[in-house]
Amino acid sequence: MIPNDFYRGRRLRSSLTMRELVRENQVSASDLIMPYFVVETDDEDFKKEISSMPGQYQLSLKQLEKRVEEAVNNGLKSCILFGIPAEKDDVGSQAYDDSGIVQKAIRLLKDRWPNLIVCADTCLCEYTSHGHCGIVKNEYVQNDPTLNLLARAAVAQARAGADIVAPSDMMDGRVAAIRDALDEEGFTNTPIMSYAVKYASAFYGPFREAAESTPQFGDRKTYQMDPPNSREAMREAVADLEEGADILMVKPGMPYLDIIRQVRDNFDTPVAAYQVSGEYSMIKAAALNGWVDEEAVVMESLIAFKRAGADLILTYFTEDVLKVLNK
């Protein structure tokens, strides 16, 4: 005899439309931020595939414009820019030069698509000859002397038209330094999306090829967070909020879903998650070998971010997902 008082969850799973009706989380175009790597080059047609990130490229300004145009036509709402300058030096001067490659790219994109949200990664590692995120002395990254350069970079990005600046360096006090500099220059309405909880992760390898930012000595463990720590993540988030951050980011994404949930539960501010290069490359490699259904795995991974509490997702799959959402 079958009891009539047990839970029948299948009633709400009986069809696609029924499942959609009661779905708790979903991914939309407004949730997604597409990262782009733009290169300073005289070759307008420069487009180099990143070997460890199939389907992602280093792009000249012209090629960036073409790529973004297609994405905007598919519904792209937001992007974030990483720059690769023609020349690097020990203080990353091209990061805060008004003629730097990211500043040029910002102006280009905002002129073409005023309503596109253009974020700028605010860091020095792509611009320094040593590959670290700040000024180096005796092979140690100097915290306080770096803050002024980060602030100058953020102001240059805002002056070029960036809608959001996103400090990713993990120097102590950088959000306050950037907020003060932006306000002093009249950019009081420019939000800061802080890489508030950024771990010293093994998942960044492909990005360092893409951005040509591999450290020339040592690693970044003295300024990025230690992966075993979660309580420390709350201290970092609190500090950035008190200094003026408008959006808190957790990076990487999938290996740190528990951290995303903790940030979501403890703070009312918008929360971003970065599905980083290593996550992208692993899914791509498995899909190219026929081991997984790429579209299904990507969408499931993004739903995991939403379920954990992320409002925004930075992912290299953005362009592909927009096509899925348009089906």
Rank of each mutant, 00 (worst) to 15 (best):
S78G: 07
N326Y: 02
V136H: 07
G278H: 08
N115R: 13
R220F: 04
D268K: 14
L64E: 04
D5Q: 13
F187N: 07
D320N: 12
K77T: 14
L325A: 07
V263R: 00
Q63E: 10
S213H: 09
I313C: 07
D258H: 06
I303Y: 06
A162F: 00
L124D: 08
Y274E: 00
P191C: 09
V165L: 05
V271R: 00
L108P: 11
F37K: 03
D265C: 05
I178G: 05
F37H: 06
A310N: 09
I84D: 09
E139V: 05
V141W: 00
V271M: 01
N74M: 00
W291L: 12
A245C: 00
L325W: 02
Q275W: 00
E20F: 05
S230M: 09
G161Q: 11
D320Q: 15
E209Q: 14
L241C: 07
Q103E: 10
I247Q: 08
A233G: 12
C119P: 05
A156I: 10
P167L: 08
A202E: 13
D265V: 01
V276E: 10
E184M: 08
G253Y: 02
S28W: 03
E209S: 13
Y57T: 05
E49T: 06
R23Y: 03
P228I: 13
A296P: 02
E20L: 15
N138Q: 10
Y280C: 11
F207Q: 06
R179A: 12
E319M: 10
C133P: 11
I178A: 03
Q58T: 04
E232A: 03
I260G: 00
V27K: 02
F187H: 10
N326G: 15
L12E: 15
Y223I: 13
V38Q: 00
F207V: 09
K48D: 09
L182K: 01
L149C: 09
E242V: 07
T318I: 08
P191A: 01
I135L: 15
E319T: 12
I2K: 15
F82P: 10
Q157I: 05
C123G: 15
Y316D: 12
N326R: 12
P252L: 07
R208V: 13
D111E: 14
V38S: 01
L16N: 11
R112F: 08
V292G: 06
D265F: 00
D258R: 05
D31Y: 04
L116R: 09
P206C: 07
S230V: 14
R179K: 12
A285I: 15
D144V: 15
G290D: 04
G253T: 01
D219S: 09
R107E: 12
A285R: 10
I283P: 05
I313R: 03
R261Y: 03
A233V: 01
A285H: 13
D219Y: 05
E44G: 14
V197K: 01
V165N: 04
R159F: 04
D219G: 07
M254S: 12
A177G: 08
F187T: 08
R13F: 05
A177N: 08
D172C: 06
A287G: 13
E87G: 05
L147C: 14
N229L: 12
T190Y: 02
T17S: 15
S201E: 09
D169W: 02
E294V: 03
P145A: 08
M193Y: 03
M170P: 06
S201G: 14
I50W: 03
P167T: 10
P227A: 06
F305D: 03
